[in-house]
Design a protein around this nucleic acid. Structure first.
Lengths: 115, 115
DNA sequence: TCTTTATATATAGATTATCTATATATAAGT
DNA sequence: ACTTATATATAGATAATCTATATATAAAGA
């Protein structure tokens, strides 16, 4: 089953930052890695990713540098900045709060206030 | 801490359908209930909810009827149709798949494929 | 009594994130 | 030779939600 893509809205940036926390990566690599780690739930399109990366760089959340692969191919690597790490931390917390809130509505129907 | 609202994109409809699975409700009641159940993580705006309800009715996922409250005030109640119940079931499954996928990227970095 | 806040629904227009489509270029496989 | 995979990029379309605004009544407070 494939999921409604609009669910991803708001999470894509978090996922990208998380990948870069582990190691520097180039765009195409991120798409592949996300697809693998999510069992193809995330099949990010190139046309989605690259503009996001440019935006992250502009906000100084990532830095880029070019490096040649073994096959002499030029790749653009992205590196997470200190600022990016801080944002990632926040985004992780947001995700926890959000997913807990959704779960509490979907499973149970109890109210936090009633605890 | 308040969360980035764009996270909600794609989940709002699911949450509304879930509320209606439990009982018929009117719009304003849904906003209040969602806020309570989510500890105010979801503070849905009226301008967001009502157009969504109209859309759901058009797609025959909900039906509406008017009923007077004790104070003689007219309220528009919404009822989940069979079609709406089926969609809710699908949406719940999508949420599970999606949230598992996000968690597997954020926590660990292991790949499904490697299990 | 007057004013503000809460209840209740509704629509227009703006914003934003992501998607589709398209473009370019090289490497590898058939 | 042709197709698929690798690799990056941008323009324009789409879709979901937001803000702002409007209307109307009830309740609460000054």
């Amino acid at each position: 089953m494939s999921i409604d893509k609009s669910l991803l809205t708001g999470s894509t940036t978090t996922l990208i930052l998380k990948l870069l926390e582990e190691k520097d990566m180039y765009g195409y690599e991120m798409i592949e890695t996300l697809a693998n780690k999510s069992d193809h739930t995330f099949d990010l399109k190139a046309g989605t990713l690259y503009p996001i990366l440019h935006g992250l760089e502009k906000k100084e959340l990532v830095e880029s540098y070019e490096k040649k692969a073994d096959n002499d191919r030029l790749r653009k690597y992205y590196h997470l900045t200190k600022k990016g790490k801080n944002l990632l931390k926040e985004k992780k917390e947001e995700w926890t709060i959000f997913s807990n809130a959704v779960n509490s509505v979907l499973n149970g129907g109890f109210s936090y206030a009633s605890i």
